[in-house]
Design a protein around this nucleic acid. Sequence first.
DNA 1: ATAAATCCTACCAAATTAATAGAATTTAAT
DNA 2: ATTAAATTCTATTAATTTGGTAGGATTTAT
Lengths: 147, 147
Amino acid sequence: MMSKKCKYALKALVRLAADYQKGYLSTGLIAQEEAIPKKFLEQILLELKQVKFVNSQKGAGGGYYLLKHPKEITFADIYRIFDGPIALTPCTSLNFYEPCNDCPNEAVCYLRKQLIDIRDKTRKSMMGASLQSFLDNKSAISKNLKK
Amino acid sequence: MMSKKCKYALKALVRLAADYQKGYLSTGLIAQEEAIPKKFLEQILLELKQVKFVNSQKGAGGGYYLLKHPKEITFADIYRIFDGPIALTPCTSLNFYEPCNDCPNEAVCYLRKQLIDIRDKTRKSMMGASLQSFLDNKSAISKNLKK
DNA sequence: ATAAATCCTACCAAATTAATAGAATTTAAT
DNA sequence: ATTAAATTCTATTAATTTGGTAGGATTTAT
């Protein structure tokens, strides 16, 4: 399961992707449209700014905008920022590696093979889900509604 | 990431699988061999008994034993018992379905498609990891050590 | 000036996690 | 019968994480 924070971040980024290179979107607007608590969203966007996924413009008429192309940000990236490792254990994580304290010798760990296999497949599927792909869904759905 | 409880359960079950149909293993023995806090393991095994993965024999010489064939228990099953849904959201879970409160209309949710795709792939890889497969690792590794 | 926006830090309640504690119960062996 | 070994059951607890809320400081456009 992903945290609410992560889901909120995903929705906010998809919304920003919808207006990619079309100016600023305020926290208030995104919060309202995506049903996210506004003050919580502020914190989330701040974190996304720190990792250079978005940038902001202060003051009246300001807001946030996406810095990268929607194809360049995937769910795997977002998950890692807010929920940490994709792997099932620290010792099988690529981006957050840490040895396990209950494991005396990693080379002899009989769990590793499968845990790495699961990580690889989960990782791959998460990397396939770019902001662009969510955006494509969104327009396909609204197109379908009009018919 | 999986919880420690889940990892402990997995290790305990693999250990029990190693002695499948060979009598009882005590909590104390498993705890020692697998570096699991004994009293914590007791609770875990109790839960595994409730879901009929293991059974127990009280008293001196007693202990736990695996009820199912090691091929019939997969990591997906264990994960669900201790860590809950494999899916990233309740609304995309097969075994723990719940509607999302921040989602007015599921049919129009533009996140679903990818979240279901990720769930399916994660699920599939987790179902591929049976107790037997971990056991096969274990013997392959110890065989390799002897050479 | 003022209104609108981000920025920053602190706080908080509830839930979850990872245990620990202790006693009750059952069973096998002496 | 007694005792030792084992599971069973229930409660407690400390630390961390989650999902927010609060309030003010700062910046900028009008």
